[in-house]
Design a protein around this nucleic acid. Structure first.
Lengths: 395, 395
DNA sequence: CATTAGCACTCTTGATGAAAGAGTGCTAAC
DNA sequence: GTTAGCACTCTTTCATCAAGAGTGCTAATG
């Protein structure tokens, strides 16, 4: 949609003023705040045109105008296409949070929660962040071990030192010999593969390759494969849901209750995440306004989302949810800054520093080992061949 | 506080009526609803007495009366001390949820979330549940393994098949020999001990016992010990926060925002959990009314908490948060029923059933292996001595 | 002496209406 | 094309008023 310059400037003025005040904005206000020297009457004529075009509307006769979804959309598109000066300001504003954010969290979970909080605090909107996908991450290491007679522990380490584990119940104890074979079998066949490459067919192949073919071994292999494939669980962390009370248009019982509920259940947010991941936006940032929202119950809101990447294809989504009259400029600025920081945080900046790159809890570390490339599983590196050297009697 | 029977009945009538309606209740209403045949004038006199005692109060002259915190307290104490008929009803009401709840979740995390939701749905209040403590649980199994040159993976299995893990960064690769020694060292020294028994002194002792004493090994042992000791992280799951909008006295912006915020941050809830765990209440159930709340910002609420136990000393807390005019009878009933079900769920009812007693995510299964007692670590059972039998060349 | 009927009094709630204010659309003038 | 002026509309605010609910007190009653 192309708009004459003057109309565009008036539209922007209406939007910007409404973003600030939340009140319908009248012609007199616009006449005073813009630098084009026009009287309120002229503005009124232009506004009548804009209303006819469906860009602004008035809640009732003789109230000021407020932007429609289409009006917001035009405003946002214009903003996104011209990298603005204001963005710089927003970034500076966030700089203070840097220390807060930059503290390396030893758990991915904690880190994500911290990012969510930072977003919420620095924007005064509700925020969310999804855990990164691991579908395209490669498997580094698999280990099965007998915990007790009836349980086998399977641990799988993925690129980025994410850990997945599971206790697999078994009918009878596996012999140590079979256990070793299983370990080697799984490591040689699966290490170096991406999670998404583990198919049912592949698993069947491995089962056939297993020299001894008991039902138990089959079970264990299935379970192990399931950890890798099936565990692709989307976790979503949220913060600042209470910020919706700052915006009267969202704060009535009905709406507030629905939004809070969506935030608690997190399921609705999941569909926003999916939507975002599946479609790349401008500058990596996407804006859903009102009816464009994937979630019906949030039609009174806008969402700004972005896809972050922790290297090695671990992608996730961050999002800001607020009223339609959201400060889009600021939010987009903050968003970009956060993404920069996430990037810097992950990149092995100072190689050789020793920091706990662990993961308890969800079992997840956020730093890969610094710099040096993982080498996929090769026999000589694993401990099994070297076992020869051990004399058990010593113990 | 001892109260003449008639006054007590009037107090109860006031409380009960106010719980239902949320409106101040007048003398005429009481006169009609109680079975003691008294005119409103008499009730008025009695109510004036009750007010003087500080059990009820009136919002303004010429409004009805509402209970004070002390009034609620008397009511609740009376209810808790006499096991009531109504409780039975509440339990029956919950029976429908049974199917929903009884589905064995393969993850502790999912199960806890499900319990929280059940509580919230069946009571129409906000609910929370804390993850069980593992302080007194015993360690079953420890395993260190070299993931790649610069990372050692430590996995620890605790009673109930809870799994803790961490990737420990190391300066240089450990020899397979040292790795084996470390494994045996840790297993022989720590298996069978309760988490809370792992002291700093014990760790120092183990370090001294390690034949080879390099800095790396010391680091690894420290890290392993830290997983066990330090990871005692209280996780809290919540549900139904939006239920507060059902109760006008909590639903104004100020209060709602605070409560929602507390529910999201979960920190405040943590102090309620601590408070509950440290003091056993009547029937295992505790009620905090208004000012009795450990959390200042929730002074307008009441909380009913209970301590659940998943066997083997894994204790946690469930809680219902609602307005002071909460349906205490129902809540206490539901609470007891949930506790029964949790108990039944954990108890190995049908031994021999094969169900996934796993844990991904937080790495946590909720069923111990069925029936048969764990045997703490013994050398012959572990795979290490048996390795002799393997011919590596075969591979 | 406990209970009750009656009554004046207080306070909230809801409805009504008037006045003020903000903003528009339209017309006519520049 | 722009602007001043004006009538009109609609919301918001405030005061007033009547109705209703509930109380406390007093006096009457069994």
């Amino acid at each position: 949609m192309e708009l004459p310059d003057r109309k565009m400037r008036i539209l922007k003025a209406v939007v910007r003023n409404y973003l600030e005040t939340g009140e319908p904005v009248g012609s007199r206000t616009i006449s005073k705040m813009t630098d084009l020297k026009l009287s309120s009457a002229t503005i009124r004529n232009e506004m009548a045109d804009l209303e006819e075009m469906g860009l602004i509307t008035q809640p009732h006769t003789s109230a000021g105008r407020i932007p429609t979804d289409a009006g917001y959309r035009l405003y946002v598109d214009d903003m996104l296409s011209s990298e603005k000066q204001e963005l710089q300001d927003a970034r500076k504003e966030l700089l203070d949070m840097k220390d807060f954010l930059l503290k390396k969290q030893d758990k991915l979970e904690t880190m994500l929660q911290s990012v969510a909080r930072t977003l919420a605090v620095s924007t005064n909107y509700a925020s969310m962040i999804s855990s990164p996908t691991t579908r395209s991450s490669k498997i580094k290491f698999i280990q099965l071990s007998q915990v007790d007679r009836h349980n086998v522990l399977a641990v799988i380490v993925i690129e980025g030192n994410l850990i997945r584990n599971k206790v697999i119940p078994v009918e009878e104890e596996l012999s140590a010999e079979n256990m070793l074979k299983l370990n080697m079998l799984l490591n040689t066949n699966l290490c170096g593969l991406a999670v998404e490459e583990i198919t049912l067919g592949l698993i069947e192949g491995i089962k056939r390759n297993a020299g001894i073919h008991t039902a138990i071994i089959s079970d264990v292999i299935d379970a192990a494969a399931e950890i890798v494939r099936g565990e692709e669980e989307l976790k979503i962390y949220t913060s600042g849901a209470n910020n919706i009370f700052r915006y009267p248009e969202l704060a009535d019982h009905q709406r507030a209750s629905e939004i809070i509920s969506d935030f608690e259940e997190k399921q609705a947010l999941g569909s926003i995440v999916q939507e975002t991941l599946s479609s790349e936006g401008q500058n990596g940032i996407q804006v859903y306004i009102g009816d464009e929202m994937p979630v019906a119950r949030m039609r009174d809101c806008s969402v700004v989302t972005a896809t972050y990447e922790l290297g090695e294809g671990m992608k996730g989504t961050i999002g800001i949810i607020g009223p339609k009259r959201m400060d889009y400029d600021k939010v987009v600025g903050v968003m970009k800054e956060i993404m920069n920081q996430l990037d810097a945080l992950y990149r092995p900046a100072e190689a050789g520093t020793k920091d706990p790159a662990d993961g308890g809890g969800t079992g997840t570390g956020i730093r890969a080992e610094s710099g040096k490339p993982d080498q996929p599983f090769t026999l000589p590196d694993l401990r099994i061949p070297q076992i020869k050297r051990i004399e058990i009697k010593e113990l």
